[in-house]
Design a protein around this nucleic acid. Structure first.
Lengths: 338, 338
DNA sequence: CCCTGGCACTCACCGTGTTCGAGTGCCAGA
DNA sequence: TCTGGCACTCGAACACGGTGAGTGCCAGGG
């Protein structure tokens, strides 16, 4: 196990490197942090830390920089989550409060996160599968064509066209609408399938086909995972990434355009608290030199979606984690109110 | 006026520079294009072109590169629009045909444009103000709370919460819904205000306040310009931009995040055909070294929105213009079908 | 046993100097 | 009006040496 002082040295290295973006040497360390020991001692500690794989030198006779493993230890053991200051909290609240609809909430959240952390922000729309149905609306657009509109408790609206196997009268449609809503309104998505399976039996034979079609479209909409949307922002912050640009930034931009990748990235975080994935811990290759800080948010006690930021492994973890956590909380509040 | 040959020289310079990304000299020109004259002659022509401001040298004793003015002349007089090949057309059609809803159409269009042109693609959602109302739905969520859902002929759905001044019964709501739809369904947004202004008079005094509130919310939704959304993609292509990265790319990324800027950018293109704005012709400062190629698209003969690409001024104009035009056509078809 | 100061070594970085060559402008002649 | 020739310019590429931050190792002291 590493001694107390060595951990201190590691912490100092991480902090300095995050600040200056340059490999940090033994002398500078002893000067900037009052460690109370000489550079030579620190050198020995650094050698030990390097043996353990927590730090590395970009080339011989240069300072050390933290490895992914070093950052991991740092966030796990050496650093807490830096809470937001009171003015920051107020700013967050003010910024989010003006939102008028769900799109706006998400858009504002993205902007806010990007500004606070000065990194790339990713916000997932409240997921369908965990929310509840507020209302289902059916509109007759043509004799054999129905538009299905699903409204969720998070304010999200999904619509689908349904081509019916047979013409469907207004009366039957109204009937179906009423029965459907009385059964599913306020219920959780997961419960809906069981609640509607016997619905076709209540209708005339000629309408049953259509009813089944509508229902299966509804269930499809509920389940459809690939409809999980998300919004990203703050990509301009990528320019603060590093020196060797095209090579570093390109794969990141590419990864950010793949919604699938991002959803998986956010989805992997199972923790109830803030989750941090550092460098190679990210499955996607293009994100090997980035860290992802994510957390779930939701209107009630339960998380309905995730949000987070993507930035260089060399990032201010405590600050970023604090910002992400705070934003998630306030977004949850806003969603609960609306 | 410039002689025939000088125009040829300009064209050759543009083509070479676009291809190689390097200043082009007189010798290389005569070799790669069979101009039939010697380098010295070309040099004289180049000097003349430079005097006129069509080309410039990055530094003395280097080759020439086209100026914005040079590109302008090139697209206006020297180059046509390169039509897509048959396989390309088929690919476009295939790619767009699988779309299931409006979001999907737009998302696919963005991807397609970005891939075809290898640049940043921007697609505006079909604009509300030019489309027609398909249906207005009113849902009672609480005694004094109504959700207004507006469905357009382009498949777009907008929803708004309305807090009523007084409780509003189901019967009145159904009445309002019926009257509203019989008046506005199928009508153009611009006509709606005139069609509904006397509606409150048909209701009991106690409901008039609520009806007015609902109507004004509807009108707000129709007019609301800032709700014009758009989707962008292909930002990874920015990495192919140039050498001096952070400085070039940063303002572009920032501009791309400002929806307002982009909407204005697309909106400026009034031409019925493909519009090209080159370098400093773009109002926004961050886009001074980019060109925007845009065009309107729509389901009928009329354009309901714009789409386009943003790339370096050094781009393949004929090819890009061809791709943009072709994609716009096919998207129009898809919208008309759905 | 751990810390310290000293010392030799390594190597990226920086400024300088030099060469190389693509490209130019100009001019006289066809 | 075009062409070949010629001197000139100036950035890119390379080599070179000095500088300094940083290292590893070692012997001595608390």
């Amino acid at each position: 196990m590493l001694s107390e002082r060595r951990l201190k040295v590691l912490r100092a290295i991480v902090q300095d490197y995050v600040g200056t973006e340059e490999p940090v040497g033994s002398k500078a360390l002893t000067e900037r942090h009052h460690l109370g020991v000489s550079p030579a001692t620190v050198r020995n500690d650094m050698a030990a830390l390097e043996d353990e794989g927590f730090i590395a030198q970009p080339h011989t006779s240069a300072g050390r920089i933290p490895t992914d493993k070093g950052y991991r230890l740092f966030v796990d053991k050496l650093a807490g989550v830096k809470p937001m200051t009171a003015p920051e909290r107020r700013a967050i609240q003010n910024f989010l409060e003006g939102a008028v609809d769900l799109d706006d909430v998400v858009a504002r959240t993205v902007r806010l996160l990007a500004q606070l952390t000065r990194q790339v922000a990713v916000v997932q729309y409240p997921s369908l599968t965990r929310s509840t149905v507020r209302h289902v609306e059916l509109l007759s657009l043509a004799p054999a064509r129905v538009m299905l509109v699903l409204i969720t408790d998070t304010g999200r609206v999904e619509q689908r066209m349904v081509d019916c196997p047979a013409p469907f009268g207004e009366a039957s449609l109204a009937d179906l609408r009423a029965r459907l809503n009385s059964r599913v309104a306020g219920r959780r998505f997961a419960d809906v399938p069981g609640l509607v399976e016997d619905l076709p039996e209540a209708f005339e034979a000629e309408d049953r086909g259509t009813v089944s079609t509508v229902l299966s479209t509804l269930l499809e909409t509920l389940v459809e995972e690939n409809e999980e949307r998300l919004m990203i922002g703050g990509t301009a912050n990528l320019t603060r990434f590093g020196h060797d640009f095209p090579l570093t930034i390109r794969p990141v931009l590419e990864a950010l355009e793949e919604q699938v990748v991002l959803l998986k990235l956010l989805g992997e975080a199972k923790d109830p608290g803030v989750t941090v994935r550092i460098g190679h811990e990210n499955a996607h290759e293009g994100l090997n030199s980035t860290s992802v800080v994510s957390v779930g948010y939701g209107s009630g006690g339960e998380a309905v979606a995730k949000l987070g930021v993507v930035g260089p492994t060399r990032m201010d973890y405590p600050g970023t984690m604090g910002a992400v956590r705070a934003v998630a909380r306030y977004v949850g509040q806003i969603l609960a109110e609306s």
